[in-house]
Nucleic acid binder design. Structure first.
Lengths: 116, 116
DNA sequence: TTGTTATGTAACTTATTGGTTACTCATTAC
DNA sequence: GTAATGAGTAACCAATAAGTTACATAACAA
């Protein structure tokens, strides 16, 4: 049995963060999340990129585990997968819980409030 | 009044995820986190990269807000800043809380099963 | 079977990243 | 004042990323 919190290796983290470090990719991910089972053309229709460009982004998202794709006939249906996000989320909760006590955010918010 | 959960814009997210998408940078961040107030040479001593290479990485981390640096005399002291991580953490908690209950893990499993 | 749809591959261009060495500038120590 | 230390800049190189067009393949529909 593997570690309960989040067993991602460093290479997987690279892939995940790299996939997330792009506005188009995050937008694509959002489209897929809201339309589970959609296909490549459906996603392409939401953007001004070429189909190939979108496909490459989807490949990156899939390599990161954020999208799961499934070939059915001539279509490739796409599904959002939250598991990698969940793992990092848990990991951060564990690792930075000392910092997590909302002290900083509260400080930041109050600073911003005072600024207004 | 801005959004309560975590008001990061898309460009800031790009910077943050890009900064995190590198094993050397994550390692550097860890060094700084464990040795608050250390300087560039201290960090450099932990790696096999050149000082300039480390400096560039630190610049990326600082642009992402993950490191705060402070010039004192001829030294630049470095501090880890958890706020950006915390903001994303909160953001994910809000945005994906529906998925957080292991439902998605089940979807993933069923998709994988269907594939067999 | 023939045309259309959905996807995939190849090859290419441009920009960005990740790293280096060489040099400069500012500060501290002696 | 001079030497050593810590940091920053400039210029360069190789590899990767991000996008394109052109072509190829596979499946569905008529």
């Amino acid at each position: 049995m593997k570690g309960s919190p989040a067993d991602m290796n460093e290479d997987e983290l690279d892939l995940l963060f790299h996939a997330l470090a792009s506005q188009p990719r995050r937008a694509i991910l959002e489209v897929v999340r809201r339309q589970p089972g959609c296909n490549l053309n459906f996603v392409t229709a939401h953007f001004s990129f070429s189909r190939i460009g979108i496909m490459k982004h989807i490949d990156v998202l899939e390599a990161a585990g954020l999208i799961i794709s499934q070939r059915s006939g001539r279509e490739r249906t796409l599904f959002f997968n939250a598991v990698p996000l969940q793992q990092v989320h848990e990991n951060w909760t564990d690792q930075y819980s000392r910092f997590w006590a909302a002290r900083l955010t509260n400080l930041k918010r109050s600073v911003e409030k005072r600024r207004e």
